[in-house]
């Protein structure tokens, strides 16, 4: 089977120093790969390299069985990859939620009614149909994140790249986000500090440190566990 995405010996430099060094990875269909590592280890750069926002100094990027080096080659593959940014405001640039969710389908050749229908369908599937007419910059952090995800899912991608998806998301919307991602039947790469979230969702993990990747294992073990709680007095 052809891997969906693969990197072979990729080296990405910023100035003289390498941000990623000799990085190789393969993502096959239904893989849920977590990438774990400290801040500044190159996690975001890795995701950006996969969609061609960073170009490697050496090494190979293959997307859906196609070697990609030029903008045109990456452009052809991008509608099949949904990239969730760290800052939702960077992704929500349309005035209203429905317009934003319809943006991707419009770019891939849908007519406006088709794109809006697909947008409403995606919003309903995420349980946020009631947000459709809202103005994007007035949403809460959690709502914004879900709308961003809807904008990606409306393009029916085969792969999701998630950069810190649970950052700044409240409990109720976090549950919706987890449910939506657990129900997504494509492959995904997720970068997150939220270990519970990673353990729940990922099937495989890689550790990244100083721009190098190593295999890691996800396991759960019981803990004797105590933590403080805060409750209002009745």
């Amino acid at each position: 089977m052809i891997p969906l995405l693969s990197l072979t010996d990729v080296r990405v430099c910023r100035g003289e120093s390498p941000v990623l060094d000799a990085v190789s990875l393969t993502l096959r269909s239904r893989d849920r790969l977590a990438i774990v590592g400290p801040n500044g280890a190159g996690k975001t750069t890795l995701l950006r390299t996969l969609v061609g926002l960073e170009r490697p100094a050496s090494g190979r990027v293959r997307l859906f069985g196609q070697d990609c080096t030029t903008e045109a080659e990456f452009r052809a593959a991008r509608p099949r990859i949904g990239f969730l940014f760290q800052d939702s405001d960077d992704q929500l640039f349309c005035p209203t939620v429905l317009e934003d969710v319809a943006f991707g389908p419009l770019n891939t050749g849908c007519t406006l009614p088709e794109a809006e229908a697909r947008g409403r369908e995606t919003l309903a599937a995420l349980g946020i149909a009631h947000l459709a007419e809202r103005v994007t910059h007035r949403l809460s952090g959690g709502e914004k994140r879900l709308v961003c995800l809807a904008g990606l899912l409306a393009m029916r991608p085969e792969v999701l790249l998630l950069d810190e998806p649970t950052n700044g998301v409240d409990a109720a919307n976090g549950a919706r986000l987890r449910a939506a991602l657990a129900g997504f039947d494509g492959a995904m790469i997720l970068v997150s500090h939220d270990e519970g979230f990673v353990a729940e969702l990922a099937t495989r993990a890689l550790l990244i440190a100083d721009g190098r990747l190593t295999e890691a294992e996800i396991h759960t073990h019981p803990h004797l566990h105590a933590h403080p709680h805060l409750h209002p007095h009745p």
Partner: peptide, 14 residues
């Protein structure tokens, strides 16, 4: 973000 979602000059207006 616009490029990743395939922006090609068509901006959606409801």
């Amino acid at each position: 973000a616009m490029r990743l979602r395939g922006f090609s000059g068509r901006f959606p207006h409801a």
